[in-house]
Each structure stands twice: as C-alpha cells, then as structure tokens.
Design a binder for these strands. Structure first.
Lengths: 256, 256
DNA sequence: CGGTACCTTGAGGTTACTCAAATCCAGTGG
DNA sequence: CCACTGGATTTGAGTAACCTCAAGGTACCG
C-alpha cells in the first residue's frame, strides 16, 4: 500500500537539492554546502504517489522524514474511537513526519490528495545527520515549534470561531500558502473534498457547503465545485477576523 | 512584574538536580552525569512566584526555559483580537517555553495559578548545551513533538466533542497527571477558575458549571467549588470516550 | 450512457450560548 | 469572631448556530 514499483518516468529527475525548483522553500536551503552534500547522498526522490496512496500509516515505525515536492498531502489521525481527524494539508516544500521524531513512530497518516511527489530522508540517516549537525537540529527544532504554533492556531479556529470565520480563515490560509509558491492566490483548486475541509475545521459537510454558498451569494468568493475564486479579499479577511468582539474583564474570555 | 527581590526563604534549597524531589519527573533525569553537572551550574532555582505573577509575557524575547517545581502554571496566548486563549496547565516536572525555541520569543504567556516555584535555564546556556549535547537535542525534540501531540489531542477535544465529554476528559487528564506526581488521583483541587477551564475547553463558564453539576447529580463526581472528588471513575471514563459513535465509510467522518 | 460519489439545499431538532439573577465564598474590616 | 463586599459560581429561561436527516442535483469514470 505504501511501496510500489517504479511505474512512470519522472522526467528530469533532479539529483541535487540545489537544482530543485523548490529549493527556496525547502529546509535544505538553510544548510551548509557540506551538509547538503550529505543530504543529497541519502535523500530518496520518490516515484510519484497516486491520489489515495498513503505515504505512511499511523503506528508505523518512522522510516523517513518527508518533504512534499509536488501535489498535496492530507495528514490525519485516528481518534480512539477510530474517527478520522484531519490535522493538516501539506503543500510543496512542507515537511511531514516530524511529529514522530520522539516516538520514532508515525502518530498519524499521510495520504496523497492528488498525484504527488516527495523527497524522503531515511530516518536512520536523518538521525545520523542530526547528531552531527547543530544547524540541522536548529532547523528541526524550529520546524517543530512552528508546528506547535500552527496546531495551536488551528485550535483557536476549530474550537472557538463560528463556521463562517473558520471557512474564511481556511480559504485565506490556502491562498497565502499558494502565493508563497508563486501560484495565483485568487483562484485555486481545492484538492481535498468537502468532507476533509469540514473535518479539518471541525464542522459538518453541510455547514461547509452552506457557508461557501453563502459567501458566494455575498459576493466574497465564487465556487464551482473544487475551484475557488476570491472576489472580495478584503471582506473575506474581515470575516476571518471579527465575529467575536471584545469584552472588558481580564484578557477577555473566549466563548464562541 | 516578572522579576522581584527574594522575599521568602525557600527552605532546603536543592543545589543539585540529583537531590530534587522532582528528579524522576524531570528531563534532567535523562541526561548524563556530566551534562547534568553543567545543567546544575547554569540552572537558576527561582524564588517562588505568587499567584498571578507572570513567568513571562508573549512577545518577550525568550530568556529561559522553565521547569515547574511546585504549584501550577497557566499557559495562554492572545488571539489577534486580544482574546485570551488558554493553551494548557503545567504541573511540577513539566517544561514551559519550548515553543519559543525557534523564534527565540515567547509566543504566549505563563502565569502562576498559585504560589509556585520553578527552575530556569537561561536561554543562552540552554543553546550552548544544545550545541554540545546530542542527548539534550533528542530530549528537546521529544518534548516538542510530545507538545505537538498534546495540542493535537486538545484540538480533538475542543473542536469535536460535546461539553460533557470535554469536561470528563479534562478531569481525567488532571487526575492522571496528579497521580504521576503521587497525589491522590480521586480528590484534588483545581487551581484554575471556571473561566480558565471553560476557555481551555472551548466552552463557556456556564456550560462548564452546568456540566459539573450534572455529573455530580449523576453520581460521577462530587464538586465543592474547586475541590473535585471522583466518585465513579469508570463511568467518567465512559463519558470521556463514547458520545460519538461510528459510521462506516472511509475512516469515518468526525462531526460532533 | 449509467453509476457512484460528491456536493448542495431544505426542514426540523438539539446543544450550547446569551442574558439575567440568585447564591456562594474568600478576604477585609469592625 | 462576625458582618460586609466583590468576585466566582450556579441556576434558569430563551435563542441562535450548527447538526441531523433527507432529498435532489452534478460531475466524473468506465
């Protein structure tokens, strides 16, 4: 399910990080030439994964740390009851699997939302490099603490904001991340289905759908299935902020 | 507000981690004798903080990594709108401030819920040790990835579960953590107020209060203000699990 | 061209929120 | 030691947001 024979030609397979089109987005950029050389030696540029292919499964021992090269990946976890909990979507340049560093086991799953390519650094080699490179340690510590911050942000979104705000924030987040990758931030295709979005935002499919429709009615966006066009970014950003207004006591209570 | 002159005698001030009553809970336990020696040299055992004192403020540059020695600490963040977001409660042996490692700035605040003591490792020294000790790096990576897992857990609790389940999970979590510290897991005092609990769980004060009352009516717990007694742990654990039952497709959708 | 999965829309129900008021409690001063 | 006071907590009533259930529409794949 995870492994499979090389099926297709991958066109111009880069052999060095320096030549990768994602270099400016990748953590490899932050490493010394020497360290990068070692990285180039151990790094495996995987054959494309097809939509639905798993990069790894929860509980599986961590065999590698993965960087997305193209496509998009959904990260999810299983609750005790076996419910899927979508924890994030990964775009090219983003790193997956760091949260398994401590346990040396993947706490969650990663599945391709579309045909995607990845770079994988075998866990063994990764640990060896970690031992030798303070710089790499720094970078990993940074990525990990960014992940904490991100999850915390999600916590705010999912737990305390109303549906409209959650959806607005989601759209803006996708837009911003795509912009960083030189893609049109005002029109993009959502590679995940409504179910995934709903799950990610802690809502139901119906609520997501209704909210998108409402936003379209209000002239904020245009939706045609998975294709989203941002019409009125400013109003959308307003939606993403307000909703809950201030009180006075203490740091203010949260509530919805 | 953070600093203040030594006001009280701290009784037997331990001078070495080995002698600390928390040693078995502290990450220092995992380090080599040699490393621990260095730790002992740089570590500052702070004067007690009074209830309401801040250990650090959000945005403040990270001056130290902190381990709780006694009492309890509330971690919180400020949303863009200035709302307080309670992100966790820290008990003796737990480490605060790792999420600032990357930015070298505290993303959030830490405030004492009661009179508390801490150990602080100056950030500078901490970094120096990090550079020299692969073991320490491992430990920090582990603590950080545990923090990711924890926040993710909270995400599930806050975003998707009903009020009763959230409260049940909260009580059990406190109980479990107190038990690790050799305190009675069936009767304890909540050092935070209802507002903090509500905020942490993404609920309102009234809902937390009502839920606790309902649990008392049902004979699961007994509540007298901040003092909680767990009467029927088994049923409480049931509450904490069920609530959302399975479906069939895919990994099952979340919803509430 | 049919089927299946995905998405949208509608109607009704439920949970948790809001607003409001009563009660409890700790700390203060008499 | 006890009354007093402000904040914390509990409780009640009504409401709004979101969920559930249900049906209809749409798009993609074979």
């Amino acid at each position: 399910m995870a492994e499979k024979p090389p099926l297709r030609e991958v066109g111009q397979q880069e052999t060095r990080c320096e030549n990768c089109s994602l270099f400016s987005l990748c953590f490899a950029q932050e490493m010394s030439a020497e360290e990068r050389e070692q990285l180039d030696r151990v790094l495996k540029r995987q054959q494309p994964a097809e939509r639905g292919d798993h990069l790894f499964h929860g509980g599986q021992s961590l065999k590698s740390v993965t960087v997305v090269r193209s496509g998009s990946i959904k990260g999810y976890h299983l609750s005790q009851e076996g419910d899927e909990i979508v924890s994030g979507f990964y775009l090219p340049g983003e790193v997956i699997g760091l949260d398994g560093l401590s346990s040396e086991t993947h706490p969650g799953f990663a599945v391709a939302l579309e045909d995607s390519r990845t770079c994988e650094i075998p866990f063994k080699d990764f640990l060896a490099m970690l031992d030798k490179s303070p710089k790499l340690n720094q970078v990993m510590l940074r990525l990990l603490s960014e992940e904490v911050a991100e999850t915390r942000e999600l916590l705010l979104v999912v737990g305390r904001l109303d549906a409209r705000t959650r959806v607005a924030l989601f759209l803006l987040s996708m837009s911003r991340r795509l912009a960083r990758r030189k893609q049109n931030p005002d029109q993009f295709r959502l590679t995940m289905d409504r179910r995934d979005i709903a799950n990610y935002l802690g809502l139901t499919i119906e609520t997501v759908s209704r909210t998108l429709s409402a936003m379209q009615r209000d002239g904020l966006i245009e939706v045609q299935g998975k294709l989203v066009t941002i019409i009125d970014r400013e109003s959308l950003q307003e939606q993403a902020q307000t909703t809950i207004e201030a009180e006075e006591p203490r740091g203010k209570s949260a509530s919805r």
